[in-house]
């Protein structure tokens, strides 16, 4: 059986908020490393991989691997009933047909109990190879969100070029073109406001801005975002949490 307690319901609420517009039905795989999820959007262009590690739970017990088939819209309806500061306890039997969610407020004078029906989701699981990326860029998540939003008003694609000078986002559309260049600037006082680039080799790839804007819904999970690029491979965008992460992979647009 599974019994997992989060001190703050906001952890799960924010994760579901971040991915619910990209994927609808997914398996939350519970095992001794914590709760993991991997799902692709309908067009198989983007993939989200999430991991809430065991250390992030006030209490975590999972006797055997359990796959919780969940519709994220339904889960979000139940999570709306949890206040951010409520303690949340998830419980499920082995091969469960429902997930029990209990929310307790900090004054300990309100306890809410919900059961969410589970689904049988037969989803192909993709093997994501360990990759040495040509360029790894760390920047403020708000900065990346602003760039994607601004450029998505001009075009549906963005060319991303990483060189030793910096990272350049450029696009061309019907009304004109635009480009944003961020130079390496490891802000020493406030590192989370800096932009750092590790470059193994220069890279240049084109991606759909619609997906990048969607991924940026996860900006609330972390002040910084790490963007990993290599020529001819999917882009990796990672939002690190204290005890876990949400990662997005996006296939590039090929040929010009």
């Amino acid at each position: 059986m599974l019994e997992a307690r989060l001190e703050q319901s906001s952890v799960l609420k924010k994760v579901v908020d971040a991915i619910k517009d990209l994927v609808q039905d997914c398996n939350f795989d519970c095992n001794d490393s914590g709760i993991q999820l991997q799902a692709m959007d309908n067009s198989h262009v983007a993939l989200v991989a999430m991991h809430l590690k065991t250390e992030g739970f006030a209490l975590y017990r999972c006797d055997r691997n359990i796959a919780l088939g969940i519709n994220l819209v339904s889960l979000q309806k139940v999570l709306r009933a949890a206040q951010n500061e409520d303690v949340m306890t998830l419980k499920a039997e082995d091969s469960p047909d429902a997930l029990s969610l209990v929310f307790e407020n900090s004054e300990n004078d309100r306890i809410s109990e919900y059961d969410l029906k589970l689904m049988d989701i037969d989803q192909e699981h993709l093997g994501i190879p360990e990759t040495e990326y040509g360029a790894t860029v760390k920047m403020p998540s708000a900065e990346f969100q602003r760039i994607c939003r601004d450029l998505s008003l001009l075009s549906e694609s963005v060319a991303i070029e990483a060189t030793k000078e910096g990272i350049k986002f450029s696009c061309t559309g019907d009304i004109g073109k635009g480009a944003v260049t961020l130079r390496q600037n490891p802000n020493v006082e406030k590192p989370e406001l800096g932009t750092t680039i590790e470059l193994q080799e220069p890279v240049a790839l084109t991606f759909s801005l619609k997906y990048l804007v969607n991924f940026c819904k996860a900006s609330g999970l972390s002040n910084t975002v790490t963007i990993s690029l290599s020529n001819e491979v999917p882009l990796l965008i990672e939002y690190e949490m204290e005890h876990g992460y949400v990662r997005f992979y996006l296939a590039p647009k090929i040929g010009d």
Partner: peptide, 14 residues
């Protein structure tokens, strides 16, 4: 014009 690749071109099912 560029064409949108799919992840199945890069990641194999396990």
């Amino acid at each position: 014009t560029s064409t949108q690749a799919r992840l199945n071109d890069f990641f194999k099912p396990v």
